[in-house]
Design a protein around this nucleic acid. Structure first.
Lengths: 216, 216
DNA sequence: CAGCATACCTACTCGTGCGTAAGGTTACGC
DNA sequence: GCGTAACCTTACGCACGAGTAGGTATGCTG
């Protein structure tokens, strides 16, 4: 009922692939601003310039939609980092390029990625998804450190390495949040600062320095 | 209607202060497990062994309840750390004790605090509350580092200091998450590892070492 | 033992938002 | 030039959960 009297339609017909990207763009934007639960499918559809059933037809449930967002952004980031840090370079250069790519990415996708990342940590269904991405990253960093260590003839336990990598990744994420909240800040400079804190610490560890808890 | 025929009641009458704590305990538990939005007031009330209207009567709205949780847990943690790191000790000892207290706290309140912290970052209304706590912490750490620096006759910019402090706090939080997810891990040992990564890095910075980005 | 405050309950209202049913319009192959 | 498949719509059903109305029991104070 209420059929438009067959004139020029108010919408444009577009191929599926294009619409899907538009939807994902809108979804990322709305999810990041409102958070997962507070975001409404209506708003997302509206923002994408489309009606709700289309979203369900193409990307499925709200949860599935969110996972799709997570996937796309995650893949983009992973590739940006992997592409920058070629595996045949010395460890410090690899770390530096990886950090620079990472902060560059966050700087360019401020509202997009950073807040998406913040969202996914809370709610159960996505924590796992996120944890996987994170685990891959930690593994890569740990591998890098371990490689550098063995090149120096040093041996260090797996857990030890994992924990240091975890701290590095955590510190980077934290600084990424800082970057996302400070629009005036320069990604490259932030990366340099992170590299300073990380490499001077890790570097010293690599050379065998150890700190021991004092009595009491 | 349907009034219980005046026998022994199914519940116990307790003073307000006690009930409030029970409610907060339940709220922390449920919020941490489900996330803010997915948590229902019914479940919280149920878990506290009380009916919903009581929760509204004592702690107010769902948001107010969450803020109350945040406040209690935040205060507990802040006090635990502040109590451990007396201001008249050398910087490295202060940092060590602070870290130990922090990880000890997280280890003891695993599901409670850690996940609460994860929750608050996403949703708009609480991000501010959390950011304040975090900012205080960063300020303290930055102050500590600055103090140590000046004692050595070094001068470093404010932002520089803030960023390093931010990275330290972020790394600690990240490791705290790791700790919360690994029930078998030892808080003290985790603190030691964090101290290694942090202090050897910060220490080297303190002594004037600097890392510069390579060409390309 | 009145009376008053406090602790506590059951049982609703009502908004909000996910997901869908049923139908209209455009393009493309044959 | 006509089916048919893809694209897109409006308008609804329905569940879930925040918050409330209104009533009951208990104990303290005079």
């Amino acid at each position: 009922m209420l059929a438009r009297v067959s004139s020029t339609p108010a919408y444009k017909r577009l191929p599926r692939a294009v619409r899907e990207q538009q939807m994902l763009d809108a979804a990322v934007k709305v999810f990041s601003r409102r958070g997962f639960h507070a975001a409404s499918m209506d708003e997302i559809a509206d923002d994408a310039g489309i009606s709700k059933p289309m979203v369900y037809a193409y990307l499925g449930t709200k949860e599935e939609l969110f996972v799709a967002c997570l996937h796309r952004e995650g893949t983009r980031m992973t590739e940006a980092i992997a592409g920058a840090a070629a595996p045949d370079l010395p460890a410090d250069v690899r770390l530096w390029r990886g950090l620079r790519a990472f902060f560059g990415f966050v700087g360019a996708h401020r509202d997009g990625w950073a807040v998406l990342y913040r969202q996914a940590r809370g709610s159960q269904p996505f924590a796992g998804e996120l944890a996987t991405m994170r685990a891959r990253l930690v593994e890569v960093v740990a591998g890098m450190l371990g490689h550098a260590l063995r090149a120096e003839g040093r041996e260090v336990g797996e857990t030890e390495l994992e924990v240091v990598a975890y701290a590095l990744v955590g510190a980077s994420e934290s600084l990424a949040d800082w970057l996302a909240d400070h629009p005036e800040a320069d990604p490259e400079k932030t990366a340099t600062r992170m590299m300073n804190a990380a490499w001077l610490g890790a570097g010293r560890l690599l050379h065998g320095a150890t700190w021991h808890p004092p009595q009491v």
